[in-house]
Write a protein that binds this DNA or RNA. Structure first.
Lengths: 255, 255
DNA sequence: CCATCGAGTTCCGGTGAGCGGAACTCAGAA
DNA sequence: TTCTGAGTTCCGCTCACCGGAACTCGATGG
């Protein structure tokens, strides 16, 4: 970390907010100092201001991302529309499969989970709302990657691929082949590639211009869940979402 | 609006972000200038920086709240935990009723919808994710208000109550009586008080200290939906969420 | 008991990031 | 054509922000 922080207040604010990873519920003052590289006095004043703005909340053991941030984030129009449209389809998928259903977005070389419907069964899938996973090691990631801009695909394929489990696909050749298959069939698979015991099917949600907007997936334990048998449902959900999105967009734009 | 903006960069940033209301998908440069009261040059530079930080995105007709904001918001730990815990219960409620299910938070004198599960039927309920409604005119609002800090209750009851429909409760006396009933029964109702043709049941999610954390509601058209017949389900869901929350919190704190 | 450490807070003088006014371009309307 | 409103650029002034240093407070431990 400690990337190029521009010497502006906003840059510092962002570096503080981004210091909170997907799994950090709460960070202490000192830890934030370490991650951001800001001087103590600066950081202290900044955090005070951020708390006032409710971008940060004080917790018992430090600071957390604040409630106001949640309120703002939920209004980010592109993502909100996507989630609003997708939820009914995810429900259907859940009612049909009764396994964990995800909606994911690409952010850099990772998937971010934007919605999750999974019933009461705990820990079927290790994903968390807002959590991240590498693109190449998950079905939903492969669905996103297969339709990502060529440059992104090239970047991922040329960098060394992280091995998450013994079955993670780490040779660029076979990954490239799988991505081609995804583009042909519209469905991506994963067999214990991100976590042992977990299997997953995913399908991309394509915008009117062919760009990938998001992806839908269903995941379950290999003991009872056969991804192939749900491929059609997942694909149908993804295309349904895509259709509804363009229909809404047309209504809005007034085309 | 145009409230007391502190003369700091953060203050201006917040006033820009907050200028986006719940129903504003996109705002133009000039409109933002009007709402924030910032000078053109300041605003222009600021927006440029915000776009760079992906707190704002450029849209065809102006600016929208950016994708990065969504990513950050979804990680705000308190709200994220709440949503993660609540979703399964909301699903159950939806499967049982097949009407629109909400999870709402109190923000000032309004409810903010933090989650919504509503199937494919469009526009059953006018609520949007991240949208707001007055506390006194909705079932979910009354559930929140009934258990809100006394000061908040006093404020709402002493201010003139906005009349949304002919049936909106606008006399402080009857509202106060309804809130007392909510505290006793754990269930709040609404009959065409926020919108004609809409009925709703809600129940508060109470924290271990008795403070209200959120509220759950089910809404449907008066033609087919009788709120009373679902009171028990809604109440059960709310208490279920509350229980799961404290259980998780205890695990986390290590008590 | 005092010494030591790390976390967090307060203070203050110097300075450059951010400020707003004014002048500009560009479309669309009259 | 002119006008008006949206959006952009420029530039010199200044105050909001900066970081070092000195501080408090608990916890650890010798």
């Amino acid at each position: 970390m400690m990337t190029d922080v521009p010497n502006t207040l906003l840059g510092k604010v962002m570096s503080v907010l981004n210091a909170f990873g997907a799994d950090d519920d709460e960070l202490g003052f000192a830890e934030l100092g370490r991650r951001t590289g800001l001087s103590k006095s600066t950081l202290h004043r900044l955090m005070g201001d951020l708390v006032d703005a409710r971008l940060l909340d004080r917790g018992p053991r430090g600071y957390r991302l604040g409630g106001h941030l949640f309120q703002l984030g939920i209004r980010a129009s592109v993502e909100r529309r996507l989630v609003e449209v997708a939820i009914p389809y995810l429900e259907d998928l859940y009612e049909r499969t009764h396994e964990t259903v995800h909606l994911g977005l690409r952010e850099g070389h990772e998937v971010v989970y934007a919605a999750k419907i999974g019933g009461h069964r705990q820990a079927t899938s290790p994903s968390r709302l807002g959590g991240r996973m590498p693109l190449h090691a998950t079905a939903i990631g492969k669905a996103l990657l297969a339709h990502a801009p060529p440059q992104v695909r090239a970047e991922v394929l040329s960098a060394p691929l992280d091995r998450r489990t013994p079955r993670t696909v780490i040779t660029p050749g076979s990954l490239r082949r799988q991505l081609a298959a995804v583009r042909q069939t519209g469905v991506a698979y994963e067999f214990e590639e991100s976590r042992v015991g977990l299997a997953c099917v995913a399908s991309p949600v394509l915008g009117h211009d062919g760009a990938v907007v998001a992806a839908v997936s269903v995941a379950g334990p290999t003991t009872r869940f056969d991804p192939r048998s749900h491929a059609a449902s997942v694909h149908a959900a993804a295309t349904g979402i895509a259709l509804t999105l363009v229909r809404r967009a047309n209504l809005t734009t007034g085309t």
